[in-house]
């Protein structure tokens, strides 16, 4: 699915010839020390990096038999199908309801009934429904950090994407919320292809089916999560996993 991906920030190479096949309906974890390019990598998969001035990319990301970096790709439509959740929760300064309805509204769906259904089902999928169902008009910024992050997941699910990119979704949440989100990832796997970046080794081991280890912009090792954690082939992977550097 991903071939020879190189990425640059103003001529500084941050990703070097990455090749990964991401399987559908599974969780792929990307691990590695900070600054290894894992965030850049995941942000390249829905072209959100295009927003950063000076960002340049070569190589191919094949999604549905098509390179997403081709000239004739409808980027906005692509991002709708490949949902993303960011490191820090970033709800819009609006009500919970409007946060989730937004993705549908911009696609021209404004019927109240459809929106109501989408809001309810996405919040349920994100395991937030029970906590907020009585005040959907509450400003999203008043939620706790963990709730905000689950709201962001619900928001990403509302547009019915088939891929979900999670960029360190638990880096700013408390342990209980983290557990909830991990549980959620496990649930969502049945219907979505999930890529998650994390710096938390245990988390990667818990939630993912396959894992890739990045270092200094290179993909050092990629394989089944079990294999990576139990029998790493590369010395560097082993060192990192056993906590010799981080």
């Amino acid at each position: 699915m991903i071939r020879q991906l190189n990425a640059f920030y103003t001529d500084k190479e941050v990703l070097k010839g990455i090749n990964i096949d991401i399987l559908s309906n599974s969780v792929t974890a990307i691990i590695g020390p900070s600054g290894c390019g894992k965030s850049t990598f995941i942000r390249s998969l829905n072209r959100i990096n295009d927003l950063i001035p000076g960002f340049r990319i070569t190589g191919e990301v094949i999604y549905r038999d098509k390179n997403i970096y081709d000239k004739d790709v409808d980027v906005d439509d692509l991002r709708r199908r490949i949902g993303m959740v960011f490191q820090k929760p970033n709800p819009f300064p609006k009500s919970i309801y409007e946060n989730i309805a937004y993705g549908l509204r911009i696609y021209g769906i404004n019927e109240k009934q459809k929106l109501d259904e989408a809001v309810e089902s996405s919040l349920k999928k994100a395991a937030l429904w029970d906590e907020v169902k009585d005040n959907l008009n509450r400003n999203a910024l008043t939620l706790s950090g963990g709730q905000q992050q689950r709201l962001c997941i619900a928001r990403a699910l509302a547009t019915e994407p088939d891929v979900l990119l999670l960029d360190e979704p638990c880096s700013a949440t408390d342990p209980i919320s983290t557990a909830k989100i991990e549980e959620l990832i496990y649930q969502l796997k049945q219907n979505y292809t999930i890529v998650i970046v994390t710096h938390n080794m245990q988390q990667a081991a818990r939630v993912s089916d396959q894992a890739g280890f990045f270092m200094l912009g290179e993909l050092i090792e990629f394989g089944k999560t079990e294999d990576i954690f139990k029998a790493p082939k590369d010395k560097r992977t082993e060192d990192y996993i056993t906590g010799r550097f981080g």
């Binding site: 829905n46 959100i48 927003l51 906005d76 439509d77 692509l78 991002r79 709708r80 199908r81 949902g83 993303m84 960011f86 970033n90 709800p91 819009f92 937004y102 993705g103 911009i106 696609y107 962001c152 928001r155 990403a156 547009t159």
Partner: peptide, 8 residues
């Protein structure tokens, strides 16, 4: 980012 990521 949040808005663009939703396809806006």
């Amino acid at each position: 980012e949040a808005s663009y990521a939703l396809g806006a």
